[in-house]
Design a protein around this nucleic acid. Sequence first.
DNA 1: TATAGGTCGCTTTTT
DNA 2: GCGACCTATA
Length: 754
Amino acid sequence: MDFLHELNDNQREAVLHTEGPALVIAGAGSGKTRVLTYRIAHLLSKGIPAYHILALTFTNKAAREMQKRISQLVGAENASNLWMGTFHSIFSKILRFEADKLGYTSNFTIYDTQDSKNLIKAIVKDLKLDDKVYKPNDVLGRISMAKNNLIVAQAYAQSSRITNADAAARKPMIAEIYKHYQMRCKQSDTMDFDDLLLQTNILFRDFPEVLAKYQQKFRYILVDEYQDTNYSQYLIIKKLSESHHNICVVGDDAQSIYSFRGARIENILNFRNDYPDFKIFKLEQNYRSTTTIVNAANSIISKNKEQIPKRIFSENEEGEKIKVLRALSDKEEGFQVTNEIFKMANYEQEEYSDFAILYRTNAQSRILEEALRKRNIPYKIYGGQSFYQRKEIKDLLAYFRLSVNQNDEEAFKRIINYPRRGIGDTTIDKIREIAQQHRVSMWTVLCNLEKVAGSFNNSSLTKLNNFRLLIEKFAERSQEENAYDVACTIVQSSGITDDLSNDSTPEGVSRKENIQELLNAIKDFSETAYKEGFSDKLATFLEGVALLTDQDTEKPGDDNKVTLMTIHAAKGLEFPNVFITGIEEELFPAQQCASNPQALEEERRLFYVALTRAEKKVVMSYATTRYRNGQIISTRPSRFIAEIDPHFLDGFIAPRQETSPFNFKTTSPFRKPVSETLAPVHTTPLPDIGSSKLKPIEPNSVIPGMILFHPTFGTGKVLSLEGLGVNKKAKMFFNKEGTKTLLLKFAKLFIQED
DNA sequence: TATAGGTCGCTTTTT
DNA sequence: GCGACCTATA
């Protein structure tokens, strides 16, 4: 047990306290993963069999990282018997064992978010509802919210609180859509992501003997990032640990940033109520960052009310102050940031891989990328389309899914006419209709075509039968052959190969490469499975792949590059130098969060996360104007800058004081409909500048907020800009004429000479 | 049935 | 600014 010496006192105590509930509050950079892995290693060394230990994470990446580190401590053999993985992967495994109890088969397939949205779209159409009102995103959001709170379709419809809310939002039919949605998932033998947790809860609720079995099995439970658990996940853990209370949760309430997808920070805040015999361990020493960064982060987070008291400290050197860059536009911000990186890389010998540029929204990345390209600075960008989201990959996966589960409706619809085999929308709609009437899957209709032959013409019947035979062949083969052989057959005989060969555009070539890449992965899977003696069937491959995203696929050649990503994506990572960009009101904090104290606290935690990613140096930047949704708007520095103890800042001059520097009473008029905002802003007329010295102004220099003079309309204020180049228009307010939109190419505008 | 052109809408994101 | 998605059109 010599590895215990590598821990500080608090870490060691947390590792050694194995019996009974433990709450580990792990501040940023305090060695959280180390505690988790050593704790598991310690349990194993005490002789507890690996299969009695359940360790849950939120991402595959975190699970893999932990697996790797435990392997190093106790050997790969021992580590591989642990039950370790994401909530979704672990419980989908269990659900496959117990599927029949819930009316599913163990071959159920998994709908990704796009499948769910497509199904909702189809239901909205079937129910003849307005698709402008029932947008798939919104509806799925409501259903997801319900599922994460264990509200099934019936309960949803019966809850007056919920249905009233829907009615108030003029969407009274969501309950009905939810019912259909759930019915059709079941009919398709599919579960969506939320189902994997919801159905687990149903399983444990309705089958106490099954629950007891898993309580027996999982004698020691560990949960990473506990502050990110939603109610559904929380309850699963609570039930599993009910009999023994050997539960250790690790997390940091200060880093809870996922409430928008159902995470409940109160799960960690209320741990003490659930387990009164709990013991708390606080990891307060930050090993990652300079004292300046840690203290700056502390000064920010102390503004939050709801938190577990702790004192994060660093014994590292003081380090540089936090630099604040001010730019006049988003473009210039990109320039300044890259300039700074360029200087540090060239004069201070920093590696490009030592830099991260973080932003609140993905939309900010483009302009930063441009700036990096101009400087020839290599970069990689996280987020964006993942490998498994690509069309060609999803098409092929749909073939796999249908081969394993013929009732999978979204897979069925995706490929019944891809590649083109002359089965058009009309035919597909008919099949769907018949399926609806008889309450069976579309596949079942396909298998009983002779009973409804009258509905189709002969040519359609032939085509449909051929498709059925094709899939049946794949299904048979997938029972017998290994995944790789079946996959190759599918790619060939489905016509995918031919379809892609006809496409010699660069996109087409890249599609072929992607298909090949997936085939390689399957080959790898089949060989490993064969060697290690577990199932090498397509169904097994699919189980794993459905829950996979490629956040983790580190591409070769990505070594010495600047990293760009959202702050959310950066959680859990660290970099020597971190740039936090776009620190402006209404962007960060996001404008829809400003009025809601809880949302604002979450934004502040997000800012805290951003700061604490850095080891040595933080640079923050803001612009005073920014393109947003195709419009230039003027912006002001975020309140978060002022919330940092100025002692830690370099280069930020707080704007002239009113009561508080950022207590702006008027909101920017540039983003709301003019009718709403014009009145308060312009109750007092603009001062006439027509009498002062004027000079003509270039269309490109016009910026919202400017007071300009127009020969006909007189003095006016630029409210917003729209259009580009020669079509650039300015919406302006004039004392005499009210609001006018002017094409800048023609408008003779003048600005006051200074 | 493919494609061009117009409209809409728009935090954060894992599984 | 841009992508997703719908619709018109030949």
